[in-house]
Design a protein around this nucleic acid. Sequence first.
DNA 1: CCATTGCGTTGGAGCGCTCTACTTCTTATG
DNA 2: CATAAGAAGTAGAGCGCTCCAACGCAATGG
Lengths: 337, 337
Amino acid sequence: MEDVARLAGVSRALVSLVIRESPRVSERSRRDVLAAAERLGYRPNVLARNLASRRTMTIGVLLNDLHNPFFAEVADGILAASDRAGYRVLFSTGRCRPAAEARALEAFLEQRVDGIVLVSPRLPVARIEAVAADVPVVAVCRSLRSRLVDTVYNDEEQGAHLAVDHLVALGHEDIVHIDGGRGAGSAPRRAAYLRAMHHHGLGARARVVGGDFTELSGMRAVAGIVRAGPVPTALFVANDLSAAGALSRLDEEGLRVPADVSVVGYDNTMLSAMHHLSLTTIHQPRDEMGRIAIETLLERLDRSRCETVSRAVSPSLVVRATTAPVAVRRVRPTERA
Amino acid sequence: MEDVARLAGVSRALVSLVIRESPRVSERSRRDVLAAAERLGYRPNVLARNLASRRTMTIGVLLNDLHNPFFAEVADGILAASDRAGYRVLFSTGRCRPAAEARALEAFLEQRVDGIVLVSPRLPVARIEAVAADVPVVAVCRSLRSRLVDTVYNDEEQGAHLAVDHLVALGHEDIVHIDGGRGAGSAPRRAAYLRAMHHHGLGARARVVGGDFTELSGMRAVAGIVRAGPVPTALFVANDLSAAGALSRLDEEGLRVPADVSVVGYDNTMLSAMHHLSLTTIHQPRDEMGRIAIETLLERLDRSRCETVSRAVSPSLVVRATTAPVAVRRVRPTERA
DNA sequence: CCATTGCGTTGGAGCGCTCTACTTCTTATG
DNA sequence: CATAAGAAGTAGAGCGCTCCAACGCAATGG
């Protein structure tokens, strides 16, 4: 910087102003400085800049799993939105272990990030709030009652309702839910399913079978359902992967989808879009969640808002080939088993 | 830091030593300083530390797509290895656009990362070498002849060979390759397929059908192959997603897999492991590639190596349910079409 | 008893930038 | 014509740390 200033015949402060694209610089100086910088291959040192300015223009994002395509899409939305606002993003992953998450958070603070986005954090609320005292925090996909932390969440209630409504509209009444055990979002989905069934006067016929979001669990659940008989006319599965497992097991059991059984998944992952699955599912606007998380954070950063907010995004139904009107009269079970 | 030093009754320099876990500090001082730091909630400022020490203990990693599970796994290997070495990782994504990649690289340099890993970069070699002059660079999944840049690559030659050898061992001679167009790794895979066919004396029967790594392209390719007839006994598809497309189209055409046609994919993604696909495929040790990339970088960072290296990782064959011995006598084609 | 060694510690000079307050020069204003 | 207002540029004090040279002090050896 020193060198650039000397070559351009100006002060270091002016070089700094040019680099930061300040408007109070004459066109002439700007050109001179830029030319000198170019000639010397000058690269501003972000470290020094951040240290001196006490802001890093950086947002820390804690994901808990890079593999899950769900998070990849949320990350995309985050990336796009923060890019637009001129913020850099620091990703970190806690791999679902609270201790690792805590360490990652600490690292963010040491890096002096300007804000933090937590996606499905496993951390205790107290810990999160302690961090939120130092720097703005937004939590995605987890509703924590807190005076400090803003939240963005997917409206699971609505999602499960959409699924059940769709099936009921097709004439289904025997709708079994294969849940996601203790996985993220599983509990509210299950609860919403029960409420939706109740709402349609089907409360007594509601039935939940345990799963854990894996393909295998979907297969097992179907095996159990068939063994227990009678087979329901529709399945609402807690995520697409499990739904895929359910589908392949139904096939093995000789049950046709959607002629004999309709299936609805959840997440609208790439899996559900695949041709030979073509799964009807609930779409979650993942990148939008990321975008909203960043926007919520930015409002804090530019002090345009002080009160804590909680924002919901709405899921939608994607109808594909695994749902159909319930058969008028169900064929003899023996013929199918 | 000032405050911690005062409270502990020592100098700032000593506090610095304690924080950095220097061995030349008495047990007593260490305790005092740690206690003081704890009491004041002191958090070292990484920015200042990096500025002063002229190293950031940070590695920049440029991925070109967060969505592709392939990259997520490479990233995992990178993360694990760099974590072990005490390095922090900065992820960035160029979204396959060279301009965005260039900007991301520039950002890495401004951040003064200690080293850079490029995963499947689209950037011109010259640009990469310019960066490599400033800071160690390792390229993954792209073989660029360069005196400066280390490379880690998957042995595509071997991978394609494994696939063809497997099929030939099962008695197949009519083996068509559905390629990945201009996608990453497509060209070497195609070339290796041709060489492998040649090696087995099947050079004259080698046939490549154009694809682009998507499910749709796999379906289209099969449609074209069937229309052109006669149907080959085996398909070697350039990636799993395309293979899935091929599979579903084969099904629609009334061709049974593997009874009529054997199919081998490439990548061993989660897709191929799915029960109803159960695709025989070529596994690439993705996290190992990440690990090796970091190890290669570390050797440069601690100056234990100066010459440029190029390291290959070996793929392996995963046999599942889509390949079988060729039928002794092929049934009448008309019956199947 | 003095020189030597090594450990634990310290002061102070940077690292490369930003920021505040200030100066200088130009231009508009009554 | 004096003066205020603004525009362009500058000096210099930090930001919070590391690193180097130096220092005091006890233990060791001749």
